[in-house]
């Protein structure tokens, strides 16, 4: 993916926000992970929807990265996440464009049988398990 997200070495950025650094030093280990409650919700929704099993992590990254470069550079980190989530939900037909725009579900029924939402008590175990990238190989690396 040769997109705008490939920021390594890009010129023109300002120094790291001193407010962010100061927060990090003042409350060690309690520094801000999010700039607003809205961002926390996007983070949580993204993980929860990911746990529906309709896409994998690589697809989520692609959904975030496959945007107009000017738009990517002009939006914040969690705006990228929100865009990625909206894209995947529509692609997988879990939500319609209309529902997204109106902010209301059009569906009369509850979750279809093919989908199951994760329960709160299962989250820790799922995170602990992770998703290893290791694959068996008969040959040593070259």
């Amino acid at each position: 993916m040769n997109g705008a997200h490939d920021l390594g070495g890009m010129h023109g950025f300002s120094p790291i926000s001193q407010a962010d650094i100061d927060q990090a030093n003042i409350e060690e280990g309690k520094s801000r992970n999010f700039s607003s409650l809205w961002e926390e919700k996007v983070f949580a929704m993204t993980l929860a929807c990911g746990m529906l099993g309709k896409w994998n992590l690589d697809q989520s990254r692609f959904a975030r990265e496959n945007v107009d470069p000017a738009h990517y550079l002009n939006s914040t980190y969690y705006e990228h996440w929100l865009h990625g989530l909206e894209t995947l939900l529509q692609e997988k037909k879990l939500i319609s464009k209309q529902e997204l725009e109106q902010g209301k579900s059009n569906s009369m029924s509850s979750l279809p049988a093919s989908l199951s939402a994760i329960k709160k008590e299962d989250v820790s175990a799922i995170l602990k398990k992770g998703g290893s990238a290791s694959l068996p190989s008969a040959r040593p690396p070259r």
């Binding site: 390594g8 120094p15 927060q23 980190y77």
Partner: peptide, 30 residues
């Protein structure tokens, strides 16, 4: 993590805001 914000969650928790911001991602390597 120049491309996004890859970070060792099990050991360090979630990354701080500056780790995810463009300035750090772009300038840490250069």
């Amino acid at each position: 993590c120049t491309l996004c914000s890859c970070y060792p969650w099990p050991v360090l928790g979630l990354p701080p805001t500056w780790y995810k911001a463009s300035s750090y991602r772009a300038r840490a390597v250069s």
